[in-house]
Design a protein around this nucleic acid. Structure first.
Length: 894
RNA sequence: GCGGGUGUGGCGGAACGGUAGACGCGGCGGACUCAAAAUCCGCUUCUGGUAACAGAGUGCCGGUUCGAAACCGGCCACCCGCACCA
């Protein structure tokens, strides 16, 4: 996925925060971590007492690759249930970051677990490779975007491989591969043929810094999502994908996505923004500039008799008509446009308007006309860009009316108010009530009034009831080079002519000049000049490229048949879609996920995909954060420049200057608090990094990366390694049944935890199990069995160590844990031999009682009552009630 | 303003309505060592007590229940998303 703040390529300034060799003291919370690092890097690497992850991890990665352990067929034979697990694919910015490590570790746990549970698992990886950072790199240092991108991919691929992910690399592609974007061009032509593409002039969000158009979804607080520059309004011809045609389906189907987080569904529902109301036309008293009426949308047709004025947006045609005959109107429009849409601007902006002098008639009120104002709070993008002002029952309209001295006629009487005395002060009445001063609507309630007003409008031909959507069509044109070329040709004679499919892929030219501002494709001397495929006359290629969100709107489907000569292969998508578990950041809750849903529905409608929804399950992970350190002079310090104080604060190394510590800050270059995964993996190994990132907290929450936490995870890795290698030395002749029971309880607990994404709990249960093994007096064979199960249960999280443990426990066994089935809990061993019963008096714990399973109730109650503490609490009072919850608790009520 | 979510030790967090604080981090004490590291053992919610034990305790107020972190009603705080949306 394209990050909002892409990390510029090449060396992070503090990539050396965690040096691979000794000497890198990270002194957060005393000296443990630096001391540990010292011993681990300087100690004998082949010491039998320590697990040599640096040698073992590549070895097992090679073994998986040699055995093609993670390859999935395009069309499985159906003997196993399929499971498609996918993490949002990365933007190749140069290096992986901790967010990637978390994301891909989560997905890998699911993939490995499901594989062990007998599913045919597809777990692919690719690259969301088009986008602006590559072009910026080209401008800044003269590398070609393709060279920059593919070099980054090569680097990040090897970083991902070092994590030991169970990926099917044979499915890998980058969206900037012509084999991919050529298929995307073919899909676009299908969309065009299906009537889902429109070219039209429209007011667009223009990012003056990036020099390109932005979709509404890419404008955050009035600023460009990438550049952060205030967005301007411009009118341009653009390509649009007709997502609004699917608005009702996209909204309704949210209810079917029961394995999506509630908050994502809510965000999408809000974004789609359905509202019921009416569209109606107000005739102009005198036609102006060819306009004879103004259309408005309202959700409150019941309040039509409360009209006081009509207001249009600055971009509305009627505003232009006013400007044409009135210089001051033009000046007001210009003022509105420069006002900006930033949050600050909106908050400060008072409601301003300009009376155009035009007047409109009212559909119900004869012989009266109302003034038409241009108002800065009317949005051209919503509804019709015009509204009727009803100040008594809309706060914003009321503020406007008070400012300009417009009338405020009340028409909705709140419950309990007297019509003779009810007036509106500074607060509009926006609730329901009884209509009055409203002609034929008088006496109706608000809901009945709406229905009656719509009926009357329809009868008069003045309007109709409608459902209005906040969702806009998706403008996909971008004036950039490093994107998928839009495969159409503009011909003076024939108009818009699609590039014939047999000429796809329409490739980007390689010789481009980034020295001039603007779109290099447009500047290219020859690329855009082409013969019209229809009439043969000279014509012009479209030089816009697609928004990169188009690339990510169907990649999950392409993964099913990544080498197909057609965009999709129906047998493959039928076999694999929908994605069973999709995992990624919450930042894509609207944009990417909504676009992908739209694409899937569109392709479903064209018969190219058999399912209407792309992602059956969605999991949104939290961010990875890290403490940040700021000096009084405003400098940010990297963790390795900081020393902890005994009081829990931090000072700058060397100078001793006290620093402000912020404990949970999103990792960012500017705050210098990033941690480089490559360095962590080099120093502790992939398993340690994976284990820690899973153990810290529930995966949907933000987590804090801490050095001491990683060190703790590494201690556990080494500990269970010793558990396996020291089997013979740990003599034991004792009973093995308790250990077997602990084993099977752990199988059940870890299984339940993994099923519910409670990976931190799974980790805790495995810690407990390791404690139990260590404390067990059981003999060698029973311990071997237990440690072997520990390895298999830990395998989704620590795959390399699991293989290593298995090979140590079972020399000569050539099976891989990655290909073994999941351990089954034996119900006979889940049942305990004895149980601990809590004994309460009046709900307060007074004793615990260890009793054999199956003890008669009377016996148990007698034993409980006999407890000394219980007797003291009862204090001689008669027991009124004895409550017994078998296996749990006894409660005496006195 | 609308919508969604979260509140539990020093910290991250566990806990089918049934022993609150599993597990980890940090801390304290100890063993081993010439010394350190690594490793191991013990303690670690708060208050009182040497202890046994007692009292309090899951944001606040109330309710349901033999029993509430969990369920219900009413608040508070924080986080996130949307928002001059007609």
């Amino acid at each position: 996925m394209n990050p909002r703040n892409p990390v510029p390529p090449a060396g992070f300034p503090h990539a050396k925060a965690f040096p691979l060799r000794a000497g890198g003291n990270i002194r957060i919370g005393h000296q443990t971590s630096s001391i540990l690092a010292h011993s681990m890097t300087d100690g004998p690497p082949d010491s039998p007492a320590r697990y040599d992850f640096a040698a073992a991890e590549p070895r097992w990665q090679q073994a998986w690759q040699d055995r093609a352990s993670f390859a999935a067929p395009d069309v499985p034979d159906g003997t196993k249930p399929k499971y498609y697990v996918l993490e949002m694919f990365p933007y190749p910015s140069g290096k992986i970051h901790m967010g990637h490590v978390r994301n891909y570790t989560l997905g890998d746990v699911v993939a490995r677990y499901k594989r062990a549970r007998g599913h045919e698992v597809m777990h692919p990886m690719g690259w969301d490779a088009f986008g602006l950072p590559a072009e910026n790199a080209a401008r800044e240092r003269g590398t070609h975007p393709a060279a920059w991108t593919y070099a980054n991919i090569a680097n990040m691929r090897s970083e991902l491989k070092s994590m030991g992910l169970s990926l099917d690399w044979s499915r890998e592609f980058a969206t900037c591969d012509p084999e991919y974007y050529g298929q995307q061009q073919a899909l676009f032509l299908d969309f065009l043929a299906a009537g889902l593409v429109e070219r039209r002039k429209s007011w667009v969000n223009w990012d003056p810094v990036d020099g390109t158009v932005l979709a509404n979804e890419q404008v955050i607080d009035g600023k460009g999502w990438r550049s952060g520059a205030p967005v301007e309004k411009r009118e341009l011809s653009q390509w649009f994908l007709a997502i609004t045609k699917f608005a009702p389906q996209l909204l309704e189907a949210l209810d079917t996505l029961d394995r999506w987080p509630e908050r994502v569904r809510t965000m999408q529902a809000n974004w789609i923004g359905r509202s019921e109301g009416a569209r109606l036309r107000f005739p102009l008293a005198e036609p102006a500039a060819g306009l004879s009426e103004v259309e408005v949308f309202t959700t409150r047709p019941d309040t039509l008799y409360g009209m006081s004025f009509l207001a249009v947006a600055a971009e509305h045609p009627l505003a232009a008509a006013a400007a044409a005959r009135d210089r001051k109107a033009g000046a007001f429009i210009a003022e509105c446009r420069s006002q900006g849409t930033s949050e600050a601007a909106i908050e400060q902006a008072e409601k301003k308007g300009y009376d155009t002098g035009f007047r409109v008639a009212h559909p119900f009120i004869e012989g009266v006309t109302f003034p038409v104002w241009i108002a800065n709070f009317v949005l051209m993008e919503y509804g019709t860009g015009a509204l009727f002002g009803c100040p008594a029952h809309d706060q914003r309209d009321l503020d406007f009316a008070r400012k300009y001295g417009l009338p405020v006629p009340p028409v909705v009487l709140p419950p309990g108010e007297d019509p003779a005395s009810f007036t509106i002060g500074k607060t509009a009445w926006t609730g329901d009530g009884t209509l009055f001063n409203s002609g034929f609507l008088d006496g109706l309630g608000s809901e009945a009034g709406k229905r009656a007003a719509i009926e009357a409008l329809e009868a008069k031909g003045a309007g109709q009831g409608v459902v209005n959507w906040r969702l806009r069509d998706w403008g996909v044109s971008r004036q950039r080079y490093w994107g998928c070329p839009i495969p159409v040709i503009h011909c003076e004679a024939c108009g818009i002519v699609p590039v014939p499919k047999d000429q796809l892929p329409l490739k980007l030219p390689e010789d481009v000049d980034f020295s001039k501002p603007g779109n290099p494709l447009d500047h290219h001397p020859s690329w855009k000049h082409v013969g019209c495929p229809s009439c043969g006359k000279p014509a012009r290629r479209e030089t816009d490229t697609f928004d990169t969100f188009v690339d990510s709107s169907w990649y999950f489907a392409r993964f099913c048949s990544p080498h197909s000569p057609t965009p999709l292969k129906r047998e493959a998508t039928d076999a694999w879609l929908p994605v069973d578990q999709y995992i990624g950041g919450i930042e894509h809750a609207i944009l990417h996920l909504l676009y992908s849903r739209f694409f899937t529905r569109a392709l479903h409608g064209m018969g190219q995909i058999g399912t209407p929804e792309p992602f059956a399950g969605l999991f949104t992970q939290g961010m990875v954060q890290h403490a940040s350190y700021k000096a009084p002079d405003g400098r940010w310090l990297a963790p390795d420049e900081v020393e902890a104080t005994p009081e829990g604060g931090a000072v700058e190394k060397g100078t001793g200057i006290a620093l402000t510590v912020s404990r949970n800050d999103k990792m960012s270059k500017s705050k210098r608090n990033t941690v480089d995964p490559g360095a962590i993996i080099g120093r502790y190994g992939a398993d340690t990094a994976r284990w820690f990132i899973l153990s810290d907290n529930p995966p949907e929450r933000d987590m804090e990366w801490s050095e001491s936490g990683v060190a703790g995870a590494h201690r556990f890795v080494q500990r269970i390694w010793r558990l396996a290698t020291g089997l013979e030395a740990r003599t034991g002749e004792g009973e093995s049944r308790p250990l077997m029971q602990a084993t099977h309880r752990t199988i059940a607990a870890v299984t339940a935890a993994l099923e519910s994404f409670a990976f931190n709990v799974a980790v805790a249960k495995l810690h407990e199990f390791a404690n139990a093994i260590e404390a067990s007096p059981a003999g060698v064979e029973a311990q071997r069995e237990a440690v072997g199960t520990l390895a298999r249960l830990a395998a989704p999280m620590m795959p390399h160590l699991a293989e290593e443990l298995w090979s140590v426990l079972h020399p000569g066994d050539t099976r891989l844990v990655a290909e073994m089935p999941w351990p089954e809990a034996d119900p006979a061993l889940l049942a305990a031999d004895s149980m601990t019963i809590a004994v309460q008096v009046l709900g307060k714990l007074r004793a615990t009682l260890s009793v054999p399973i199956g003890i008669p109730e009377a016996e148990l109650l007698a034993a409980a009552e006999a407890e000394e503490n219980v007797q003291r609490a009862i204090a001689g009072k008669p027991i009124r009630k004895r409550i017994h919850v078998p296996g749990r608790v006894v409660n005496f009520v006195v």
